[in-house]
């Protein structure tokens, strides 16, 4: 039956949360991508989950903002002077 097949082809919330990275990486097939987006458009909770997921990724990138300890940088410069000398 068409209805039954349609239902099976629908993405449920539990499946959606497993494929978010695949979606973000462009690794879903066009059909799955459409199912993902359709579900998201009609499900506030999954939309919230995906938004939190995105923000988690974004914030993880802020951990990058770190400098080398000065003492270590100084030792590396010493090593460089030794290397060329």
């Amino acid at each position: 039956m068409k209805v039954g097949r349609e239902r099976r082809r629908t993405l449920v919330c539990q499946e959606l949360v497993e494929v978010i990275t695949d979606y973000l990486e462009g690794a879903l097939s066009p059909g799955d991508r459409a199912r993902f987006e359709t579900h998201l458009a009609g499900c506030e909770l999954c939309d919230r989950y995906v938004e939190q997921f995105r923000r988690t990724i974004l914030q993880a990138g802020r951990l990058r903002a770190q400098d080398l300890p000065d003492a270590l940088a100084a030792e590396l410069l010493d090593a460089f002077r030794g290397w060329r000398g």
């Binding site: 770190q66 400098d67 080398l68 270590l72 940088a73 590396l76 410069l77």
Partner: peptide, 22 residues
């Protein structure tokens, strides 16, 4: 770097040093 340019080295260190330390 081969010519001993320290600023070139420091640029390399500031780009790659932090992630190497992490």
């Amino acid at each position: 770097l081969r010519s001993g340019d320290e600023s070139a080295f420091l640029a390399l260190v500031s780009e790659h040093g932090p992630w190497m330390l992490r």
